[in-house]
Design a protein around this nucleic acid. Structure first.
Lengths: 228, 228
DNA sequence: AGGGCTTCGTGCAGAATTTCACAAAGTTAA
DNA sequence: TTAACTTTGTGAAATTCTGCACGAAGCCCT
């Protein structure tokens, strides 16, 4: 129960580490060797104390009076996030989005190669998308086993999303990236991240309307406050 | 200072209201007239008390012993989220993703019509994407004014994203949906939502690795605990 | 060597969020 | 009408997250 008893990193911090990593990769690309928590905080748009606390969950890798080393921290964050290895991804649903994900080469270099894409539509099965051929969703289990897939991306229609999730879980997948605007019913042993642009837009519209009401209110108050 | 002094809804609750709305729309489509907090909680994958508290921020619209009315709640959530009107969206960056967003008809019915798409590449300007023609980013200000655009979606390359944001803000936009994997520097008066699939995948990989380590640990403990 | 300066690591208080638990308020049935 | 039952609305406790403030630790200059 020594070091394997890993300190659990708070969820909120886990969600920020990838952002830090992205920034550090940029710093590295521009030949920056060191950074302070203040600098990273400014780039990430957060509080400096938060940066230090987040990084402290990885261990004490900074040097007081100096800061942190870019390459070393990159290494540590990658280790903690499980990015020392590749995680194979299978896409379920060969529609516009699914094919775009399969073709898009941006994930492999970040450690998440898309190694398969499946659909249940006979018209789509067999077609090529980038380097991959769409295969039958019935081969999912075999595909997951053979190619050691751990992450499934659901890009089906809303109505097919739940059965896609069921199929993925049946096949042994334990992480799902869901693009369908629906809350999936899944066991707690499986992780899900939802990407729903409609939700994002609606959140924006709330704050947009808030601002408008605030402005209206101020205008109203001004005309009330200064009567002639 | 009566009703215009609106109770501020906690951020965490704001982020859940769109999810509830989506579910209620589905219930409505299947002719369900009423629901209880328990039912909605199950569908949304959250705690029932949380549902009740979230809905209570809208007002006391439930009936004890009975539940909530689907249509009435839909109306109230839409009102609160600012969905009683349309919010026009402009896309900056006519690459794969940008064009896909412009073509995709799924936002207009949810109240967010994409009314324009711009780019700075002369080769792309003038091309058609769906019903829209790509226009010059230099027309952004005029476009935003003329078409009353309030939300900007950034789908440029990473390197162009910050100047896209600057241009949007310069043009008077106050809400941004950012798809570039970069933290934008923007004034606090502007809302931003980031959609970064790389970040999502890395969060998943953290928990995936966590699970694997847990499993390894248990196996190890088991073999330690029962020595021959 | 020592003083001044910088920056990390973290205890702690306060804020935000989640969850519990129960009174209040309604329905239903006899 | 009353008793049994259901479900909301919400104080209050529990948990999580944030940010301040400051001691600790290293660098630099004299």
């Amino acid at each position: 129960m020594t070091h394997s008893q890993r300190r659990r990193i708070p969820n909120a911090a886990v969600a920020r580490l990838p952002v830090y990593l992205q920034i550090l990769n940029n710093l590295h690309a521009t030949n920056v060797a060191r950074f302070s928590s203040d600098e990273l905080a400014a780039l990430a748009g957060v509080n400096a104390a938060k940066v230090r606390k987040d990084l402290s969950y990885l261990g004490s890798y900074g040097t007081r009076g100096v800061g942190y080393e870019v390459t070393y921290l990159i290494h540590q964050i990658r280790r903690e996030l499980g990015l020392m290895r590749e995680w194979n991804v299978v896409v379920v649903g060969a529609g516009n989005l699914g094919c775009a994900l399969a073709k898009f080469g941006g994930f492999a270099p970040r450690g998440f190669p898309v190694v398969g894409i499946v659909d249940n539509d006979p018209k789509k099965i067999g077609q090529s998308t980038g380097a991959l051929k769409v295969s039958d969703v019935r081969n999912l289990q075999k595909l997951v086993k053979d190619l050691d897939v751990t992450i499934g991306a659901i890009t089906t229609s809303t109505s097919a999303a739940q059965s896609a999730a069921d199929a993925l879980i049946e096949a042994g997948i334990t992480s799902i990236l869901n693009f369908a605007p629906i809350v999936l019913a899944i066991p707690s042993s499986v992780s899900v991240r939802n990407v729903d642009l409609g939700v994002e837009l609606q959140i924006l519209s709330y704050y947009e309307q808030m601002r408008i009401e605030q402005t209206d209110l101020k205008i109203q108050q001004r005309s009330n406050a200064v009567p002639v």
